[in-house]
């Protein structure tokens, strides 16, 4: 079975705009999904600069999928759909 990789953007813009509130995922995800999902905080993923703005920060990347305005609920929901 393939594992899902979750990258939590901890770049300055994402952190200030809300990824500081997503850090609980580092505990929640292993609890809920075990080793099927790997999560780690990450230096700037350069997603905020891709659309020129940070209005949709914070970003989370789940494998190749980009989640903007990420929330804990949104991330968990995406993972569940993928599994």
């Amino acid at each position: 079975m393939n594992t899902i990789t979750v990258k939590l953007c901890l770049g300055t813009a994402c952190y200030v705009m809300g990824s500081s509130h997503l850090q609980d995922l580092v505990d929640i995800i292993p609890d809920r999904f075990g080793d099927r999902v790997v999560i780690a905080g990450h230096n700037c993923l350069n997603l905020c600069t891709s659309n020129g703005e940070h209005a949709e920060s914070p970003y989370v990347k789940i494998d190749d999928e980009i989640i903007s305005n990420a929330t804990i609920e949104k991330v968990l929901d995406h993972i569940e759909k993928k599994l």
């Binding site: 901890l10 770049g11 300055t12 813009a13 952190y15 200030v16 705009m17 230096n43 700037c44 940070h54």
Partner: peptide, 17 residues
Amino acid sequence: YEELGALLIARNIEILD
């Protein structure tokens, strides 16, 4: 803190780097 965060964002400063 919000203002400092905004300053760092506006100046494109990546703290982790």
